[in-house]
Design a protein around this nucleic acid. Structure first.
Lengths: 128, 128
DNA sequence: CATATTGTACTAATACACTAGTACAGTTAG
DNA sequence: CTAACTGTACTAGTGTATTAGTACAATATG
């Protein structure tokens, strides 16, 4: 696992962990069924409280990214439950709107903003 | 002004105000030089404390969206200071990454995610 | 000049976020 | 079965965000 924290960023530790795990899963660096480090191992490695890691793992499970089993460990879940596409779009639209507004605010052209998203999508690789 | 609050959303009031003003400016509903309601007027209308509105106006000024003058009022600023494109991209990339990751998490195709952003960009209208 | 209206600065109360400590319960390994 | 692991539940403390109250300073308006 390649996890690094930025203690002075102001972003809560558990959110940093969640974002990095989500990103790793989305990019295919962590594959379905693969085990994440145990809460205590990761906590010791990062010098933080195990409960902080546990908090992140709980949120990830709530979001359907992982599956935690007491005594067993935490693993990358296989695909989200079948959400309706309309529901997916409903969840995603606020993020898209924010990107659009911020881009316009910075006087970027429509094409420049789209290009930026394309780059980030490409970084995640083709559908692995 | 068309501002509506969602008290039960958990999102701080001043952030809701900032987002809506930014969106209105980006969409051209508020044009350069146009005056925003005074802190007290808007606060009275929304039944909140004037300082909460002031907080939002301060942040908007910090972000270059508006310009506040004591005794005068708060107005929509004209265009951002000339930021280097590299700096703009640096600010925007985290938003793009988040959208990309969330989209992948929901098993949306690259095209579907891009389409969503196009829609939101279109909602803001051609460069007004 | 005088008065009302603007944004600003300061203080403060309340709530909640964040992290940590400790004990518990289930699973695996020997 | 025992021991060492796993995640979970509960409590608790520290800080900070959020909002509000009040007084102040600058501008506009008559």
């Amino acid at each position: 696992m390649l996890l690094h924290l930025n203690p002075s960023s102001g972003v809560p530790v558990y959110l940093q962990l969640e974002a990095q795990v989500k990103q790793a899963v989305a990019a295919g660096a962590l594959r379905t069924g693969e085990a994440l480090p145990s809460t205590r191992k990761l906590a010791a490695e990062l010098r933080i409280n195990p409960n902080t890691v546990a908090r992140a793992y709980q949120d990830l499970e709530r979001d359907g990214v992982t599956r935690s089993v007491p005594g067993g460990g935490t693993f990358v879940a296989d695909g989200l439950p079948g959400l309706l596409k309309s529901e997916k779009v409903k969840r995603l639209r606020p993020h898209a709107r924010q990107l659009a507004v911020e881009g316009r605010q910075l006087r970027l052209t429509r094409e420049e903003t789209l290009k930026l998203l394309e780059e980030e999508l490409d970084k995640l690789g083709g559908q692995p």
